Amino acid sequence: MNEKPDERRLAWAYLSTVAQGASRSLSAAIDACGVLEVAAAIRSGSPRDEFASRYAVRAHLDTAADDLERLGRVGGRLVTPDDDEWPAWQMLGFGTLDTATDAEGPPLALWVWGSRRLDELAERAVGIVGTRAASGYGEHVTAEISGDLAADGWTVVSGAAFGVDAAAHRAALGVGGATVAILACGVDRAYPAAHTTMLRRISESGLVVSEYPPGTTPARYRFLARNRLIAALSGGTVVVEAGWRSGARNTAAWARRLGRPVMAVPGPVTSAASQGCHRMIREGEARLIGTARDVVDECGKLLERDDDRDAHFTRALDGLSGDMAMVYEAFPGTGNCSPTDLAESAGLPADRVRAALPMLELEGFVESTDGGWRRT
C-alpha cells in the first residue's frame, strides 16, 4: 500500500500528543509493528489492544495536522526516528539501562524550532546546567566556559531556565555560537516568559527542542523528564552551581546512567549554591573542572574531530609576539586610529609602530584606510 508522504509524520505527531512523553513499551511496539499500525490501534480504541486501552483517555486528541502546520509556519518541524537528522547515536544509551521505568526511555519524537539540523548540533555538544539562583561567581564562570566552548565550535545545551541555564545560552549567543534549549513544555510556549527574546534568538542560530507537542504547558514531572534529554543530547554535562538538592544533580545523574562524563565547578566553601557540586566531586560523581579546556579533556575523546584537540583553543592571534602583539592590542575595538595614537597607547616609539603596522596588514589583522588604521 502506498503511503502519503506525510502519513508517517502525522502518526508520529499523533502518538507524541497521546503519549505526552516517553514510553519504552510504546517505542518497542513501534519498532515491532510500525508507527502507522500502532497509531491506528490507539485511534480505534479496541479494548483488546493493550495500548488502545492505556491511551484511551487521550486517543481523541488527534491534533497532529494542526500542530505540524502551526509549527511549520514559524520555522519549526517534528523530527522523528524516520528522519536523517534524528540523533540516533545519542539515543543509544537508553537501550543500555538495566533498570528503567516505562517513562525513562528515549523520546518518541522531538519537536524543534529553528532551521539547524539536530544531529549536527548534537554531534559535538556539552550540557551546562546549574541553579536558578546563580551567584555572580556562577554566572561569570558559566559565561567563560560556555563562551569559550561555543567560540570553538561546540554546541551548548541547557534548559533555558533562569540562572546558570540562561547564562550558558547567552554566552554562546554572544560569541556567535550555537546553543540548544530543551524545554519542559511546547516549543511554542516561552517558559519562563521573561526569556521570550532569548528563545527566539536561540531558534535563529540553534534550536529550541521539546518532546512535547505545541501547546503543552510546563509541569514539574516534565522538568525532570527534560533533564534526561539535556544529558542525552550532550557528550558530557557540566554542573556549575547546584545546591544540596538540585535539579542539576538530576541531570548529572542521567548523564552518568547514559555513560557520559559528568563535570562540576567548585565554588567557595561558604556558598550554599556550590554544595551540590562539592558533594558530587567529593563522592566521585563528577570530575572537577574550571575551564573549557578541562571540559574538552573530559569529553573530547568521544566528541572531538580527528584534528589536534588543542587547535580548538588556538587563535590566530596567539602567533603574534613582540611589537606586533603590543600594537595590535593597542587598537580600539572599533574605529580608526593613527600611528601616533597607537604609539601612545602601546608605549612604543612611533617608528617601531610604523614598522609593525605593515606586517600586521600582511597577516590580515589590520588595514589602512583614509582615516588611519583599523582592525579587520
Rank of each mutant, 00 (worst) to 15 (best):
M263G: 06
R245Y: 00
E361P: 03
N250I: 15
F313H: 02
G319Y: 11
A22E: 00
A273G: 02
R43F: 07
V296D: 03
M198Y: 14
D84H: 09
R220W: 01
L68Y: 05
K301I: 12
S205T: 10
T131V: 04
V209K: 08
L110R: 04
S321R: 08
W154I: 10
L317Q: 11
V57H: 07
R24A: 12
E50N: 07
T17R: 15
T196I: 03
E344D: 14
S146E: 03
D297C: 06
E298Y: 08
G114P: 11
V296W: 15
K4E: 10
A134G: 09
T96K: 00
G372W: 12
E50Q: 11
G276S: 09
G177W: 04
V38Y: 06
V74H: 05
V187C: 08
E367F: 07
A88K: 06
D102S: 11
Y221K: 00
S321G: 09
R9N: 06
G236P: 02
L362W: 02
A28S: 02
L118R: 07
D84C: 07
L71G: 02
E37I: 11
E304D: 13
P268K: 11
G290H: 02
G259K: 04
V269L: 05
G236L: 02
R124H: 12
S53N: 15
D148V: 06
E120Y: 12
L303A: 12
A232C: 12
T17Q: 14
L342A: 14
L303I: 08
R116H: 15
V239R: 03
V35W: 06
D49Y: 08
L173T: 06
D152S: 12
H60G: 14
D119H: 01
R279A: 06
F162G: 02
D310E: 06
P349Y: 03
R226H: 01
E104N: 05
A178Q: 15
A150G: 09
R249Y: 07
S345I: 09
R43I: 12
A252D: 10
V180M: 10
P266Q: 09
A286M: 01
T251N: 12
L183K: 08
R58C: 05
V238E: 06
H60Q: 12
P339N: 10
V269Q: 00
I202G: 13
E304M: 08
E363P: 01
G335M: 01
L78S: 14
T179K: 13
R287G: 13
A59Y: 15
W86A: 05
G114L: 11
V156S: 15
M263D: 04
R257Y: 11
L320N: 00
P261C: 15
I128T: 00
G347C: 08
